[in-house]
Every structure is written in structure tokens, then in C-alpha cells.
Amino acid sequence: MAKTCWIERNKRKQKTVDKYAKLRAELKAKGDYMGLTLLPRDASPTRLVNRCRVSGRRRAFIRRFEMSRLTFREMASQGLIPGVTKSSW
């Protein structure tokens, strides 16, 4: 399970994304990419997406399954992911 501090941090980041969403849309429509770089780093919605919802891990993220490779491997071995089987040699 993800640590509580990671979950709370994600909630704070979501608030920042929501706060700057309208401004980001306006800057993108204008094509002002320099203005986008001046916004806070957490204003980008992509910073929230690539994070495993089970373990909270950011690295080695598999987008198709929305989980880290470690979680994916454990769940595939247990047969919890439909259509995925563990390969054995």
C-alpha cells in the first residue's frame, strides 16, 4: 500500500494542477511555452499520472496497467490481472 505521506502529497499536487489548469490551457492555446515553463513544476497534470496506485512508486511505471513493474509482477504471479500469465522457462 502507498505511504500516507505520498497520498497526501498527491492530493496537494492535484490542488495545484486544478488551480493552474485554466492558465495552462490559455498559455497552450497561445503557444506561449516559455510562460508554461514559469509555472510551478507541480502545475503539470502529467506529474500526477505516472505513479503506481498500489505502492506509490514512480519509477519503472507501466502505463498500460497503471502500476509499477514490481506490483505488476506480483499481481501477475498471483493471477490478479486478467489476460496476463507468468511466463516460465
Rank of each mutant, 00 (worst) to 15 (best):
G31K: 11
A60L: 07
S44A: 15
A43Q: 05
A43W: 01
L36I: 05
R53S: 12
R24S: 04
P40I: 07
A21I: 07
K30M: 13
V54K: 04
V54S: 09
D32H: 13
A25P: 01
G31M: 10
S55C: 15
V54T: 11
L27E: 01
K30G: 09
D32A: 13
G31C: 11
E26C: 06
A29G: 08
R41V: 07
A21D: 06
Y33R: 10
G35F: 02
P45Y: 00
D42Y: 03
G31H: 10
T46Q: 12
L39I: 07
M34K: 12
G35Q: 00
V54E: 07
P45E: 01
D32F: 14
A29R: 12
K30R: 14
T37G: 11
G56S: 04
S44I: 06
P45A: 01
R41F: 11
R53A: 12
K30F: 10
T37Y: 04
A43F: 03
K22M: 11
V54C: 09
A43P: 05
L36G: 01
K28E: 15
R57S: 02
S44E: 08
R51F: 05
L36Y: 02
R51V: 06
A43N: 06
L23R: 15
A25Q: 06
A29T: 04
D32M: 12
R24Y: 03
L36A: 05
R53N: 13
L27S: 02
M34A: 15
R59V: 12
R51P: 00
L36Q: 02
K28Q: 14
